[in-house]
Write a protein that binds this DNA or RNA. Sequence first.
DNA 1: GTTCTCACTGCAATCGGTTGTATTGAGAAC
DNA 2: GTTCTCAATACAACCGATTGCAGTGAGAAC
Lengths: 338, 338
Amino acid sequence: MPRPSSPRLKDVAEAAGVHVSTASRALNEQTAAMVQEETLDRVRRAANQLGYRVNGMARALKTRRSMSIGMLVPDITNPFFPPVVRGAEGALAKAGFSLFLSSTDNDTDKARSQLDAMTEARVDGLLLGMVQRRDPAIDRLRAGAIPVVLFNRTVDDEGISSVVPDDALGLRLAVTHLFELGHRRVGLVVGPLFTSNGERRLRAFRRSARRLGLEFHVVEATAFDEAAGLRATEQMIREFPGMTALVAGNDLLALGAIDAGLNAGLRCPRDLSVVGFNDMPLAGRLSPPLTTVNVPELTLGRLAAEVLLSLIANPQQQPERIVVPVTLVSRGSTAPPR
Amino acid sequence: MPRPSSPRLKDVAEAAGVHVSTASRALNEQTAAMVQEETLDRVRRAANQLGYRVNGMARALKTRRSMSIGMLVPDITNPFFPPVVRGAEGALAKAGFSLFLSSTDNDTDKARSQLDAMTEARVDGLLLGMVQRRDPAIDRLRAGAIPVVLFNRTVDDEGISSVVPDDALGLRLAVTHLFELGHRRVGLVVGPLFTSNGERRLRAFRRSARRLGLEFHVVEATAFDEAAGLRATEQMIREFPGMTALVAGNDLLALGAIDAGLNAGLRCPRDLSVVGFNDMPLAGRLSPPLTTVNVPELTLGRLAAEVLLSLIANPQQQPERIVVPVTLVSRGSTAPPR
DNA sequence: GTTCTCACTGCAATCGGTTGTATTGAGAAC
DNA sequence: GTTCTCAATACAACCGATTGCAGTGAGAAC
């Protein structure tokens, strides 16, 4: 019966004429110093010869480090996330970690089952981008010993590391921009308020609008996508006539809002100015080019990964809550009111 | 010294007062029938009580199945890929598999190192979207026993399963569309010819253009992104004056082409019609809305995953080469020549 | 009362590595 | 020549599951 699987350390050791423990040390950077130069060579040569690749599962089982991390995003097809994933993946790969990625489709059950899968895979850390403000999944995670960093959204609980955009600054910039263009009657199509972005952006919007003396109205969208933006804006147009401008909870909501406006005979930006949030890729090439709040997505992903890595290196570490600065990008979807 | 880690099967077994092998059988669907109803209950209760999660590494080590698959894409920030990833992930999750995702940034070295990492993680299969027509990485993989399905691009070698769009049909549709609009002098900004999409689209373009009696010129872009599209089109404009329309190797190249045209004073579609390929998300909302060849991305990803799953279930299986049909979506970036 | 079944459970080997400890042997110190 | 030191290597336990096989005991068959 021929051995069907790939060569094991034992095979390498035999080929090199050493004990498997010696082969193990020879092949590990950390321990290679323990073994004689000449032996080192023999083992390495044998390993190359046989095309040996360490069995990560066996190693992980023994060392209790899988060298993998799990990343959950609400929806990978939301253009905001791919750059975040890329930023995270780049930083992780540099440190030798692989990435388990999963889209939860904004579905709590799916999120839980994916989280279970990652727990079973014994990932060394988690990057979570889909949490709700009060999230039972997080509570269960806190009990466990697995390092977690939240990104994009965070939880109300202060005890967990996170990397999020500066929601308050973003909304202030957006509202101020509209005010300076001359708008005085401004709507907010906010994302779901069970998310931190929803709630924070709403609060900042209210505060800015009040301070500037604007008339305003708020409608909560059921999700962060175009369809929800469309529905919410239809409602907004019914409930808040005379509105000349609108801030959306993110860029996809903004697209839905523009559509709803069009359906109601309001052209953007002539009859209705719209500001998005995120500055997702291609936002500047849309028709009209979207005025929006830029979030440095790659950086956000990279930072989240770096915080996680340092948390893995030192689990006792205090939680770190990073707020990434944002800027307003003024493009074609906003204009002075007529 | 308290046990810091999560509960093991042994802990569950002790809590339930049974042997660990019995606990193992009780907790596995396949083998649960072997154990008495009453014992089953006790074990399950104990497992829930302790919050037991199987250690995937230990299981994988013993069973030689990691229940994970690796997916390599050239660039996750290319909007074409997220829906493909999502399609694949959905199908895989349904079958209980997790997804290792990695962006290779079109870098052969990075691809190789990621492939090594996946090999070490002992993934049960690979979904590769970044292969070149003659790819040494594939040759190395063929030797091994790990099931592979290529998507989006394929290799010249016939022996490997793949799921790719119908490049030939797509280009024929694009060229015919331009012909019917009245264009007679048409360029092709093709993707790198070391990719199957590049080469196949070029061939189909030439054939269609000849058959229709068009004058044509081809420039090869160095990558599938906007910057490469811009550069290639600048060259095209120099070398092929009087061109009224252009087919791009994908949507990002098309965007670069539109920019290059603008820089040269050619407005799209008034002075230069442009057809893309892929119909990436938001393509229809761009300015101008992109005429392009629609590839059903979600389906493509799902199919790739399904082929891989069946290959994993039955490794002796003949390779399957699926060609996914495409359609032309006529929008605003094409118009009759002036 | 024995023996045979058969359903259930326990035993122990195994997957492929890592790592603390023991062993070995050559040269230094005496 | 004996003992000590130390570098290099071998031994063996262990990580946490799975699974072929052996054991057990209750009831059936005789």
